[in-house]
Design a protein around this nucleic acid. Sequence first.
DNA 1: GTTCTAACA
DNA 2: TGTTAGTA
Length: 114
Amino acid sequence: MRIGELAQRTGASVRSLRHYEANGLLSAERRSNGYREFPDCAVETVARIRALLAAGLPLAAIEQVLPCVLNQKLEVQTCDSVVAVLQKELCKLDAQAAQVHRARTAISAMLSGA
DNA sequence: GTTCTAACA
DNA sequence: TGTTAGTA
């Protein structure tokens, strides 16, 4: 199917679909006129991508875990590569949390002293 | 009319 | 991301 139909069937914008394809999250063939031709399974793939985006994962991480994400419920097939990516994301989040904690501690101290 | 790329608000 | 320009 062409990109317009995929957009209708998934609720994602044409712009987003091109973006996903450009980042390797979606594969599409090219017709002689340059139009992308998506396989039927792309509908399910987009659903998985959107579920992962909703979960807060960046596109770069999604690209890596997508092959092992089984469905829209984000149930994953246990793959070493996926575990590694998820652990890395968890590590990043922990680092961000620590930063947030330091900032709020400093700000709280300033407010209590004022 | 639909899609493509590239670029800008 | 949305949108717009200029094409094919």
